[in-house]
């Protein structure tokens, strides 16, 4: 067995090494904080989007759209609360989930004037993992074009062209899938509507 001196020395090493790692964690965080704030402040601060000088949201965080004149995002289990991310955690045989989905499909069909037996893109009626998904599929965006165009009094072709411009491609051709950022699309839509009024 070790003698008392060695034990005392080891226990001191235990506490001191722990303190060293605490200091390391602080230095590590401060270093990354300082350098990311210097090199890439836009990303580091949450990819915030501004309109007339006020923050309207983040490029990466979806927000709730309910009015007919906006493109709608995915259903969210937490109602797009930015400080409370979460999914529904309903399993594939959950009766509660199926009831929700049935109601959402009905609403999508009525809102967009689809026939009663039309299939609906899955992302438009199933809640996202984080509850904050900023994107919808390309199919879901095009499905909403007639409704949005009618509510805004804009020609359908213009709105369709706008969606076309907002399709985000695969990253480097291999990562991810084609998708549409709902907030950016709706901001562009507001701009388009504004420019037409003038």
């Amino acid at each position: 067995m070790m003698d008392k001196n060695e034990l005392a020395r080891d226990l001191r090493a235990c506490v001191l090494l722990f303190i060293v790692v605490c200091v390391l964690s602080i230095v590590y965080t401060l270093f990354i904080n300082w350098s990311t704030q210097t090199i890439m402040p836009y990303q580091a601060n949450g990819s915030l989007l501004y309109m007339n000088g006020t923050v309207v949201g983040s490029e990466l965080i979806g927000q709730n759209f309910t009015s007919q004149g906006y493109f709608h995002g995915r259903p969210s289990a937490v109602n797009y609360a930015g400080n409370n991310s979460g999914g529904s955690n309903y399993g594939p045989t959950s009766a509660a989930l199926m009831e929700q989905v049935r109601q959402r499909i009905e609403k999508v069909r009525i809102d967009n004037g689809l026939p009663a037996n039309a299939t609906v893109p899955a992302d438009l009626v199933l809640a996202s993992g984080s509850g904050l998904d900023p994107h919808i599929s390309v199919a879901s965006a095009f499905l909403q074009v007639p409704r949005v165009a009618k509510a805004r009094g804009l020609p359908e072709t213009d709105v369709r062209a706008l969606v076309d411009r907002h399709i985000e491609p695969l990253q480097f051709g291999i990562f991810g899938q084609e998708r549409v950022n709902v907030l950016k699309l709706n901001m562009a839509l507001d701009e388009l509507a504004m420019s037409r009024k003038r």
Binding site: T29, I32, N33, T36, Q37, M40, Q43, A44, N45, G46, S47, L48, T54, V55, V56, G57, S58, E59, L60, I61, Q63, N64, F65, T66, S67, Y70, Y80, A81, G82, N83, L183, N186, M187, D190
Partner: peptide, 29 residues
């Protein structure tokens, strides 16, 4: 971080959404 993971020590940002509601955008290291 270059892809958009946040890194700051700021309080959460209150955004005014397009539909006029308020949304908290979290911050943190």
């Amino acid at each position: 971080a270059s892809q958009g993971v946040i890194q700051n020590m700021n309080p959460y940002v209150t955004a005014k959404t397009l539909e006029g509601a308020e949304q908290l955008i979290p911050g943190g290291p």
